[in-house]
Amino acid sequence: MTSTTVEVGITHLPEETASSFEIGKVGMWVFLAGETTVFGGLLCVFVLLGLHHGGWGAEGAHVNWRLAAINTLILFASSMTAALAQTAAHAKDWPGIRRFLALTVLLGCLFLAVKTFEYAGDFAEGFTPLTGLFWSFYYATTGLHVLHLSAGVVVLFALFLLATPKKSAEWLERKLKYACLYWYFVELVWIFVFALVYLTPCAA
């Protein structure tokens, strides 16, 4: 246990207390808490309206769950590469950080490409956001998720550009931790979007 102190205003706090309170991490969790409420509320209304309509079976039969399953696998792979980028950052392995960040960004772009293909198919079949309640929720939920994922891709790409030995390894590891936390959250949201919007209506 360290006995050194850090000066904060006129108060002296033990160094361990001061360093364990990561304001960046808490800030990220506050942001994720807000995002959880947004997605939670949206999915909650989707489920309750589905129950009100006696299920989404008829509309849900038209969603392309096979492409969504491929996208889920892509997101799982991207989380693995993000975790490996964090591992590389911990080991100060600069080529490793860049390699795994590049892979994560590429997998994120692949997800967006598959999603675009899926939307194109839905539109070609005549299912637009104006087709009905189910499709409004489908586009709102998956579209909001796509926006979040795109933001994650931009942030990870920025970190890829910044990942040079000129930067402090500790700085990069910390920023990568926050960015990856966001990326895992986006994956977590997709797990429930996939189960509720794609699989559940097809099971009915």
């Binding site: 693995m80 975790a83 490996l84 964090q86 591992t87």
Partner: peptide, 11 residues
């Protein structure tokens, strides 16, 4: 940090 094998197992 997660090791490579841990990450692969999780995936």
């Amino acid at each position: 940090a997660l090791s490579v094998s841990d990450s692969l197992k999780t995936f």
